[in-house]
C-alpha cells in the first residue's frame, strides 16, 4: 500500500485531526491514499463516521502504543 501523504496530528485534540485530514485529502487525487496519525482516542469513532459519510474508504485503522493510524483512500 503506497501512501501519498502522512498527516501527523499527534497531540492535537478534536476537531483538529479531522480538520487537518480533510485539508490534506482535498489536495489528493481520486484513489490516492492518506495516512493520518492521532493520539486522540475520540478520533477512532469520528474517523469511521467521517469517512463513511463522505464516501471515502477507510482501508484500515490500527493502534500502536497510544498512536492511532488511519489509512484513507480518496473516492
Amino acid at each position: 500500500m503506497q501512501t501519498k501523504i502522512t498527516v501527523d496530528t499527534k497531540g492535537m485534540a478534536c476537531p483538529m485531526p479531522i480538520v487537518k485530514a480533510k485539508k490534506a485529502l482535498d489536495n489528493l487525487e481520486s484513489g490516492q491514499i492518506m495516512e493520518v496519525l492521532s493520539t486522540d482516542k475520540g478520533s477512532v469513532n469520528d474517523f469511521q463516521a467521517w469517512v463513511k459519510q463522505t464516501n471515502h474508504e477507510l482501508i484500515k485503522h490500527e493502534e500502536d502504543n497510544g498512536v492511532y493510524k488511519f489509512f484513507v483512500r480518496k473516492k
Binding site: P15, I18, K22, D46, A49, W50, T54
Partner: peptide
Amino acid sequence: VPYFHLID
C-alpha cells in the same frame, strides 16, 4: 450535525 460536515 457532525462537526466534520462543518469544517469548510
